[in-house]
Design a binder for these strands. Structure first.
Lengths: 128, 128
DNA sequence: CAATTGGTTAGCCATGTAGCTAACTATACA
DNA sequence: TGTATAGTTAGCTACATGGCTAACCAATTG
């Protein structure tokens, strides 16, 4: 029944929220306490903590409590995992573009050869 | 009142769903009709169409209807936009790492100089 | 010890999301 | 013209999400 969310699901879902993206961006510049992180946002702390928690279960952020202050830091692995996904898609996409270009070149070449054989048909319109 | 979703919000939200990621991956390999796309999924068509619609409003996918079949294709710009976000974060992250490394090197150097001046203290344990 | 600070837990509410069925439209085919 | 095909619209349910307040620890600080 538990619809097992993949890490990728959770990372993308976490990044779909502007507040959480801002937190990630902030943490790229170095670790910070919950209070420091929450400060720029006009939001009640419990609401803000939910965002932190989402980031934590997605694996994007780790935190550690010492005394009464919890310090958060980015864990870059999850971020890299998501970035990889894009790069893989792009690789497939670009491979396809290459194949498509090759295909167009082949068509063009065939068309030229056909035109050389039956020059009169080469100027006819498609639908008529 | 309309909580203006940024394109990035919509792209990440769209990619947070495994069905939609699969659609994007499929479309990386070339355009396809709604029916072809829906075929591998055990899901009613109207439900599936919602996913297509989400992908379309996110800008990841474009579609066009001719006759009774709607053909979908990937529009790679939105994908690149999201990939850019990662690369920017990584750049900031890496810059920070560099600064951190420089800081550690400076500490180390200072420590060595201090050790040269007061060699006896250099072997003391931290907490005692 | 008392008060403050930093975070946490519990619980409420409004809205959004993902799925379904049923019924409909519009093209294509026989 | 009638039937099958490909999507589409409408409307429902269940659950997830994002926000809030109130009340509650547990370290610090005076």
């Amino acid at each position: 029944m538990a619809n097992q969310l993949t890490p990728l699901d959770q990372v993308f879902a976490a990044l779909a929220d502007p507040t959480r993206r801002a937190i990630v961006m902030r943490l790229c510049a170095g670790e910070a306490s919950v209070g420091e992180l929450a400060d720029p946002f006009d939001m009640a702390l419990p609401s803000f903590m939910k965002h932190i928690h989402v980031l934590e279960t997605s694996g994007l952020v780790q935190s550690e409590k010492s005394g009464r202050v919890r310090t958060c830091r980015l864990s870059p692995d999850a971020l890299l995992g998501a970035e990889d996904w894009f790069q893989q898609q792009r690789a497939i996409w670009e491979a396809r573009l290459d194949r498509f270009e090759a295909y167009v070149m082949k068509l063009k070449k065939e068309n030229e050869q056909a035109a050389a054989k039956r020059p009169s048909r080469a100027t006819r319109k498609k639908g008529s």
